[in-house]
């Protein structure tokens, strides 16, 4: 089995494991598993931007917000969930192109700053434009699509979407486009000399990443059934970035593991109470220093060592 296929098998294996766990466990675990699926979709999008195109985006939380509000606002008007999800993703893709195009003209960390600015402004729009977003009171009673209304049912919907996203991302990275992304990451000068237009591919990676943020948001709103601006603040962008690097930036399975850590760690570190975030931040810094390739890189190192010993 080639490495590509192993990646897809790994991702779908995790999704299947989550489904089995969801059948056996308590409603709280079912909720955590659904949250894992949502985070994984958003982080997979960010991984395209950061891991493959090498650009920091701090607006992923805003794209999740756009997806969530699109779904929450349109569902009561009788739109089917599939349509609100698609529209949210499309809106985010368009926003990504609109913002990424100028920001990617210049080299360096400019996309980081433009997206930082966007994230701040998007938060203010969510908070201040109460006529459409409900302002600080938010939108409640967001209904789940028919057939998926129970906690367990909705988990399966999240997992179905995650499976589709996994397959889509896998296909994309194997396509000529995706190979160009990887060529860019490995050797931008050589990629450019082979005719890869660096800026176009970076923009495409950013916009697709944004669209996946929108998909995650569309899943998030009916999961929690009540949204307000706070979850879509800059903090979520930071957390999503950390999920990508903790899992392993630029590796296909990285976001799956990073999101798992982000969902499970607060549960395991409950005993630390208030000191949880300080501990988490410090752990991430140490991980970044000693294992820059994240958990996936760490696992690969351990496996490689096992092989050489044999």
């Amino acid at each position: 089995m080639s490495r590509d296929h192993a990646n897809l098998a790994g991702a779908l294996g995790l999704v299947a494991a989550a489904a089995v766990l969801g059948l056996l466990t308590s409603p709280y675990i079912v909720y955590l598993l659904s949250l894992w699926a949502v985070y994984t979709v958003a982080a997979t999008g960010l991984n395209l931007t950061l891991g493959y195109a090498g650009q920091i985006s701090l607006a992923q939380a805003s794209f999740v917000g756009v997806g969530a509000y699109t779904t929450a606002i349109l569902l009561p008007h009788g739109w089917p969930f599939g349509a609100t999800l698609a529209l949210g993703a499309l809106l985010c893709f368009a926003l990504g192109v609109l913002l990424g195009f100028p920001a990617l003209r210049v080299q360096g960390h400019y996309l980081a700053f433009v997206t930082l600015a966007l994230a701040t402004i998007a938060f203010l729009v969510f908070r201040n434009e109460a006529w459409i977003t409900g302002g600080i009171y938010g939108i409640d009673h967001i209904r789940r699509p028919a057939g998926f209304t129970s906690g367990r049912g909705y988990l399966f919907l999240c997992l179905i979407v995650l499976a589709l996203v996994s397959f889509g991302a896998w296909w994309l990275l194997r396509s000529p486009w995706g190979r160009a992304f990887i060529a860019l990451r490995e050797n931008p000068v050589r990629a450019a000399s082979l005719g890869v237009v660096v800026r176009d591919y970076t923009l495409l990676a950013f916009a697709i990443g944004a669209a996946l943020g929108g998909v995650a948001g569309a899943l998030f709103a009916p999961l929690v059934q009540y949204i307000e601006p706070t979850p879509f603040a800059l903090t979520l962008s930071f957390s999503l970035l950390l999920m990508v690097v903790v899992g392993g930036s630029g590796s296909f399975l990285g976001p799956y593991l990073g999101a798992l850590v982000a969902v499970l760690l607060p549960e395991w570190l409950r005993f630390l109470k208030d000191y949880y975030l300080v501990t988490y931040g410090t752990a991430v810094i140490l991980l970044l220093i000693f294992f820059p390739d994240g958990l996936v890189g760490l696992a690969e190192r351990v496996l490689a060592r096992g092989r050489t010993v044999k």
Binding site: H109, F238, L241, G281, V284, I285, I289
Partner: peptide, 11 residues
């Protein structure tokens, strides 16, 4: 490094 400074900000 830039991402590590974000983690530092959280800390």
């Amino acid at each position: 490094l830039a991402i590590a400074t974000m983690a530092l900000s959280i800390v």
